[in-house]
Design a protein around this nucleic acid. Structure first.
Lengths: 333, 333
DNA sequence: CTGAAAGCGCTTACAG
DNA sequence: CTGAAAGCGCTTACAG
């Protein structure tokens, strides 16, 4: 209706309630500092007027925006969404609002997005993944924001980090595969530092445990079912056929199982398949998919808490939280 | 390092560049108003100091935050992510920043999230889905924000909307099924207004086209593969076995196909399956999944554009954009 | 428990 | 093309 009415300001509420704007301000931010009868009058007037404090003005003077930038590569086919949800929720409970920045799957927009966040004077930046560019790391260290890195464990975090060791995940996968007696694994690795760490962890452990060979195929993005056909085709043209495929996502694992079925291969007897993520599809698929569970929700909660503790000055050590992961043994491997 | 150094202010840049703060301000917002040699000096000083305008302060005086709230039910197992991505990108290109608000799958946090957005003085609110609560609609109309509703076509949008007709989608599905000669459809409907509209569209058209019966099963969230087992089980206990299942998502359709395969039913001969969304899995599955394609990316782009046009005052009609949808006939039905 | 006053860091008519 | 000045809407020592 009257879109142009203009919002009431604190001064207006103060005048009608017969108090100063300082008192109204206190009513909204520190209720306990105001007497009950004054509070009642203010509340009444504020409600009538539909007064809502302008956070922009408030942040300007307090120098705290209560804004936190969430930096995430993408939202579609992304393994990070449970974490993002948890962060937004946990932040909201603490009075913070999330600003969403898309960095691109190759982090190509990282700098631009950080620039936006800093312009908004966010109190914190929670990054999905570890920031690789040293220049960006250095720049961020000198800024007045708390940075939380997630989904990995940097040796020297910018401020703090919560995640798990991709290298250890690869190592443990090699151990599992060896224990199961598979002879010739195929690793499907995405181009990216996290996948590379898992691969390294796998390769070095595999060499330690067995003299057997292994094969690996690189894909652009490991999250999609869509890569399954091409991966399967490449696999079939290998000189030695692998007996187990290690996938970068449950969706890819599912796709491989579908392709295998169509080619007349039985899973896991002719070909075992291992997923990553423990999305609900992993448990629901037939055969159910052996996978590694990552607790994105937990990472998100810890990340929000870590940020908050530091923002409140409760904690300023260089914390690194390892939430670990869990191998879920099911039918596919 | 010196986290507490405090950011340089515009006055500092002005002093060192030997100009007034007004000129520095103009350099950053309206470069053309500043002479080249002055601009050069300002740029040099600003770079040295690492000056970055405080958007909070700027927004306070211009009364434009360049912030847009994106309201979305959830991020996991969500069909809206491609739209959200497109919105964030399109908004970014236009100089706007996205604030993320999670409304919950049943919109239970809608009011709280809107309150947060209004406190931040966002210039716009882009809602995933149509806001159902009449009180909220009324309240929003009197606020000084542009509201864009998406993923549906409200009869009387708060401001404007971009989406498609769920009713028409249901109608078209009935037509397709009848044309294919299926006799006894089972609709799997989520509890929610969009799904209800599709169901209504289906049911009324089906009654028009045939005297045949139909069955329907309600599920909580239609997006997951996970509901497939329970739906399939319920289906098997029906007196008459359906010859086609209409699913609320491709993931559910995929799950039904898997369950059918396990039960020895051939798809589509014994049981046809129709998905919704045309996610990549639909095309990659064996058999490939007949589904309805919704162009979330397009909806996102149009939504951002609609918002921007209105924010710039270029357009203030009550626009409704119908992006339609497309039935993709594949192997599963 | 409350108020007067200064100030957060910008932008923008207005005047030149 | 540039500057002085007012003001955006709050919060917070400080004083009472």
């Amino acid at each position: 209706m009257n879109k142009k009415a203009g919002r009431p300001r604190i001064e207006e509420v103060a005048r009608r309630a017969g108090v100063s704007s300082a008192t109204v301000s206190r009513f909204f931010s520190r209720r306990d500092l105001v007497s009950d009868k004054t509070a009642e009058r203010i509340k009444k007037v504020a409600d009538e007027l539909g007064y809502r404090p302008n956070r922009l003005a408030g942040s300007l003077v307090t120098r705290r925006s209560r804004l936190v930038a969430l930096l995430v590569p993408a939202l579609t086919e992304s393994p990070f969404n449970a974490m993002i949800e948890a962060i937004v929720d946990a932040l909201g409970e603490r009075g913070y609002t999330a600003m969403l920045g898309l960095t691109g799957n190759k982090y190509e927009n990282m700098d631009k997005v950080i620039e936006t966040a800093l312009g908004l004077r966010v109190d914190g930046i929670i990054v999905t993944g570890v920031i690789n560019d040293p220049a960006t790391r250095t720049a961020l260290r000198s800024e007045d924001v708390t940075v939380v890195e997630t989904w990995g464990l940097p040796l020297a975090p910018i401020d703090c980090a919560v995640g798990f060791s991709h290298h250890e995940m690869g190592r443990m996968t090699a151990e599992f595969i060896q224990r199961r007696g598979y002879q010739f694994p195929l690793i499907v690795t995405a181009r990216g530092s996290r996948a590379a760490q898992r691969r390294d962890g796998f390769v070095s452990e595999w060499a330690k445990l067995t003299a057997a060979d292994y094969e690996d195929i690189q894909v652009d993005i490991p999250y999609g079912f869509g890569q399954a056909r091409s991966v399967f085709r490449q696999m079939r043209s290998l000189a030695t056929q692998p007996d187990v495929v290690i996938c970068g996502s449950d969706a890819l694992a599912l796709g491989i199982i579908v392709e295998a079925g169509r080619a007349g291969l039985s899973v896991p007897d002719d070909l075992a398949v291992i997923g990553l993520g423990n999305r609900s599809i992993a448990g629901d698929m037939r055969p159910s998919i052996t996978t590694i569970s990552i607790d994105g929700h937990r990472i998100g909660q810890e990340a929000a808490k870590l940020f908050h503790d530091r923002a409140e000055g409760k904690d300023d050590g260089q914390r690194i939280i390892d939430v670990g992961f869990q191998l879920i043994e099911r039918e596919s491997a």
